[in-house]
C-alpha cells in the first residue's frame, strides 16, 4: 500500500528517526538555539560547541518531532562535526536546495561527501508540506551560529 513512500522514508531515515544520534544535552555548549515548527508542534534544542579556531567540535540536539525532522537533525549533527562555520553555512544552503528541489547542481564542487550523506532526505521535495520538517534543524543551526544574536530561536516559517 505504501511502497512508493520508501523514497521518502528510506531505511536510513527510519533508523535515524527511531534512534537519533547525538540526542542529548551538550553540557558546556557555547552555542544553543531553539527551533520551532508551530504548525505541527515540532520542537528542538540544538547545542553546538565551536572551538576557538571556529570549528564545530560537536553538535547535539534534543526535542520531539516527526521521523523526517528527527532524522534530519540527527544526520546534521553528524555531518557538521569538524566543519568550519563557513562550511556549515554552505552545507545549510545546499541542503535547503536539496530538500526543496531534490537535486543540488553544484554539490560536486565542494563538500560532496557530506552532501552524499544527506542525500536520503532529498525525497521530501515531493512533499511540499514536509520540506519544513527536513529544514528545521538547519534553520536552527543557522540561528545557533549567527553572530551576536541574544535570543537564538528559529522557526520553520
Amino acid at each position: 500500500m505504501f511502497d512508493d513512500l520508501r523514497d521518502l522514508y528510506q531505511e536510513v531515515i527510519l533508523d535515524h528517526g527511531r534512534k537519533p544520534r547525538n540526542f542529548r544535552r551538550l553540557e558546556g555548549a557555547n552555542r544553543v538555539a531553539r527551533g520551532d515548527n508551530p504548525l505541527c508542534g515540532d520542537r528542538m534544542e540544538l547545542f553546538v560547541n565551536v572551538s576557538p579556531e571556529g570549528r564545530i567540535a560537536e553538535a547535539a540536539f534534543q526535542g520531539r518531532g516527526c521521523a523526517i525532522s528527527m532524522a534530519s537533525a540527527s544526520l546534521m549533527t553528524e555531518t557538521v562535526r569538524g566543519k568550519t562555520q563557513a562550511e556549515a553555512a554552505e552545507l545549510s544552503g545546499k541542503f535547503r536546495e536539496l530538500a526543496m528541489s531534490g537535486v543540488c547542481p553544484d554539490c560536486g564542487a565542494s563538500l560532496a561527501g557530506e552532501m552524499e550523506r544527506l542525500q536520503p532526505l532529498a525525497g521530501v521535495h515531493e512533499f511540499p508540506s514536509r520540506v519544513k520538517c527536513a529544514t528545521l534543524a538547519w534553520h536552527t543551526l543557522n540561528a545557533a551560529l549567527a553572530d551576536g544574536a541574544e535570543e537564538r530561536n528559529a522557526t520553520s516559517e
Partner: peptide, 8 residues
C-alpha cells in the same frame, strides 16, 4: 508521529 502518519 502524526505528521508521518498523515503523509502515509
Amino acid at each position: 508521529h502524526p505528521h508521518d502518519l498523515s503523509t502515509l
